[in-house]
Write a protein that binds this DNA or RNA. Structure first.
Length: 295
DNA sequence: CGCTTTTGACCTGCGC
DNA sequence: GCGCAGGTCAAAAGCG
């Protein structure tokens, strides 16, 4: 698994150091994963310019994740414009589970020969003293593993919502222990539950918190160029999906821009903004749950 | 009592 | 086939 090598020999921290961009959507499900050059070109052309120094300032840094490819690579890669048009591609694991077994019983009773299908992953780095950043969702820790070549263990979290299959991985960069690398896998099928210490967080924050910690000091608001918006819609043009968070995006358009580039890793064929627009502009469809509208 | 965390064991995929 | 490392399970412990 190349992920292992990349994770161990080239952890996310290296991406920060070696690249002027630190944002990406994992290609673990075969959706998209770009080289530095390609990514740089894209962001460079559209003026995306994340300052690596921002890491030192403690600002949110979306980061390219390592790649785990355990699923058949054909599902996404071969069909960019229908990246998430299929529910089985959206939530392959979930659909399998819902048909046969509850999520918790999946792994060990997994059918032989049935490869585990990874959902799109989204990682970013934050400078924080706490490992587990508050993001508006409730997480249950289900594992912790020592990471090779790193003194810091990696923690595994799962969304406490029983219907939600989102997972989160938290680890510290061994190169810069002050940097927390958070990797989200999957998409929430529900709203945030609010912060334990007061108040339900707003839709705006819940939107950004889909993938980013809602900690202002870690957030790096970027006024996203229009070009990027169109760019990010590349993969979201097939199925019209109600977007309950559209207004969230309108409200927090610029602040959500950080997330937007997550989907910019696909070929930039700028379609007009889709009807679903907003969320569609930002979050890769593969990372959104069509069940969301039912909850 | 219910939920979360801890942690050792187990499973899986990959490289050699 | 074997070993390694990542990922997950699940029982036990902890906590409010």
């Amino acid at each position: 698994m190349e992920d292992k090598d990349r994770a161990s020999s080239d952890p996310a921290g290296d991406f920060v150091g070696k690249s002027s961009w630190n944002l990406g959507v994992d290609d673990s499900d075969g959706s998209h994963f770009f080289t530095d050059d390609r990514e740089r070109n894209m962001f460079g052309d559209i003026g995306w310019n994340l300052d690596p120094n921002r890491v030192d300032e403690g600002l949110l840094q979306p980061v390219q994740t390592s790649s785990i490819e355990t699923a058949p690579s054909s599902s996404y890669r071969s069909n960019n414009q229908s990246v998430s048009s299929s529910s089985s591609e959206d939530l392959p694991e979930k659909s399998t589970v819902s048909d046969e077994k509850p999520p918790d019983t999946l792994s060990k009773s997994k059918k032989k020969g049935q490869k585990r299908v990874r959902q799109p992953r989204f990682a970013f780095m934050t400078k924080s003293e706490v490992d587990h950043l508050e993001d508006g969702y409730r997480w249950r820790k289900y594992g912790q593993k020592a990471v090779k070549n790193s003194p810091f263990p990696r923690s595994y979290y799962r969304c406490t919502n029983s219907k939600c299959t989102v997972k989160k991985r938290v680890e510290r960069s061994h190169e810069d222990p002050t940097i927390v690398i958070t990797t989200y896998e999957g998409q929430h099928c529900h709203h945030t539950v609010g912060f334990p210490r007061g108040g339900i967080i707003s839709h705006e924050s819940s939107f950004s918190s889909q993938f980013a910690p809602t900690m202002p000091q870690f957030y790096y608001p970027i006024q996203l160029p229009r070009e990027l918006n169109t760019c990010t819609t590349t993969t979201t043009t097939t199925v019209s999906q109600p977007c309950e968070r559209r207004h969230d995006y309108e409200a927090g358009r610029s602040s959500s821009a950080t997330m937007a580039a997550a989907d910019a890793s696909l070929p930039a064929l700028p379609p007009p903004p889709t009807d679903e627009g907003l969320l569609g502009d930002i979050v890769p469809r593969g990372m959104r749950n069509r069940d969301e509208r039912n909850i």
